[in-house]
Design a protein around this nucleic acid. Structure first.
Lengths: 253, 253
DNA sequence: GGATGGACTCGAACAGTGTTCGTCAGGACG
DNA sequence: CGTCCTGACGAACACTGTTCGAGTCCATCC
């Protein structure tokens, strides 16, 4: 934290005293972890889009080329962020009595981790989980399904589907947060409440004969916090899994 | 189609005959529609990432600045692509006897439209549907839910959730297709079958004591086409909606 | 101790991106 | 015929990810 406030390009101001320097601060060596930390910090602060190789390098008081000695490219760095963050997902001890509740809370926990680290979710799209942390989470989800009596094929598909959905929710929230931050940084504040009101009035003002369902649902459409929506979704997912599994479980196929 | 093959910057080679030119081809005027068409073509051909303002301009034989007379910015252009494509989603006539089947096929149709226009799905993330086409589709989905006896709050949430999920599936497939195309363009062919085999062997080679569920599910994890997975998911979604709705339907809230 | 090798650092540059500015040509209108 | 105004567009700005090659430092071996 020895950087003042501004992190604009500092130029070649490197002071290197040749005599025995008392407080030289010998420029700590770069590491993968330091790079990942810097990237996470910046994402949390300014959103995914604001993070670039150059901005990370600036934060670490070096040039962009230096990063490539520790990270293959941007894509790999994104993967490292995911790996780092996924470690934080709590892994439950499977209990056959309440596997469905455990499944629900695990999904919500996963979302919570993404929320605590804005920007990271965007890197999960199109990524096959191969790092230990993601595998650990996947194993836990699979175990819960199995303990609940879901057959393997359904478990595999549900695993894929559930994590994709949670990731999508996180990405969408991310985009909104980022947009709000960008708006806040450059001019008017983009309040969430105010935006919800706008959307509602938009739906209300639609031609009623053309959109009877949407207009009559305008109020309910914008009601409920993000939390309510997510709880509903997770409940629906698990209930759906039970239903589909029960339907074809005895019939086989 | 009077461009040869290469589309590199042509420089100032404009031949402008001052006499009455017989076959002058007076350079058709730019329009929004022509820009959108060009963008869709390029996305279909080379994927989302390959499309830029400059590449579109090149395809239309002009400079990037010219596009900004018809399109506010890249974000708006993306919205226009979504709008254009969403028009193609078939709207069913709601039938109370088989609303759930209709809902399922409509979701699959939506995905099919995205698949037919690679790249477009990526623009839907973080977008509130305000264009007529998206509203029409949303209205249709809502109507189906209502006809099926789902209450308004659940309908609203399900609307949001289902379209988000379908969008996420489309985006993920998009990324894979693009990756395959990029690999094909520059060297080895990235076969799908070959990749599936790789993933399977990866799961099989995990330490069994640490990942008992994943290792034993390796075969089933990679089985089934994308089609099977999506059918399962859609069935799960609709079944889940029924279940959740039935559960709290009588209780109210 | 001194030389050597290898890992790390990083300025400069390349090819690309979205976007803006100021100028310019062409057609419509008075 | 002259004016105006819309659309076209070359050039430029501030970015992006990435590579090259030269430089620097450190640990190891002779």
């Amino acid at each position: 934290m020895d950087k003042r406030t501004s992190s604009f390009s500092a130029g070649p101001v490197r002071i290197r005293v040749t005599t025995a320097a008392p407080a030289k601060a010998p420029k700590e060596r770069l590491t993968r972890d330091r790079i990942v930390d810097a990237a996470l910090d910046q994402m949390r602060e300014h959103g995914y889009e604001a993070v670039s190789m150059r901005s990370i390098a600036r934060a670490l008081d070096t040039g962009p080329a230096s990063l490539y000695a520790h990270v293959a490219n941007r894509e790999q760095l994104d993967q490292l962020l995911v790996e780092r963050v996924t470690r934080l997902v709590p892994i439950p001890e499977p209990d056959p009595e309440r596997w469905d509740e455990q499944l629900r809370t695990m999904l919500l926990d996963l979302l919570e981790v993404y929320r605590a680290h804005p920007g990271v979710a965007r890197a999960t799209m199109g990524m096959i989980p191969t790092e230990p942390a993601s595998l650990r989470a996947a194993e836990a989800l699979a175990t819960l399904c199995r303990v609940g009596g879901i057959d393997d094929q359904h478990t595999a598909w549900a695993l894929d589907m559930f994590s994709l959905y949670i990731g999508a929710v996180a990405v969408e929230e991310d985009i909104w947060i980022e947009r709000a931050k960008a708006a806040a940084a450059a001019g008017e504040t983009l309040d969430e409440e105010q935006m919800v009101a706008e959307v509602r009035s938009l739906f209300e003002s639609l031609p009623e004969e053309q959109f009877p369902a949407l207009t009559s649902m305008a109020a309910v459409m914008t009601s409920g916090t993000g939390e309510d929506r997510v709880r509903f979704a997770v409940e629906l997912l698990v209930a759906g899994l039970r239903a589909v599994s029960a339907g074809s479980g005895t019939a086989g196929g």
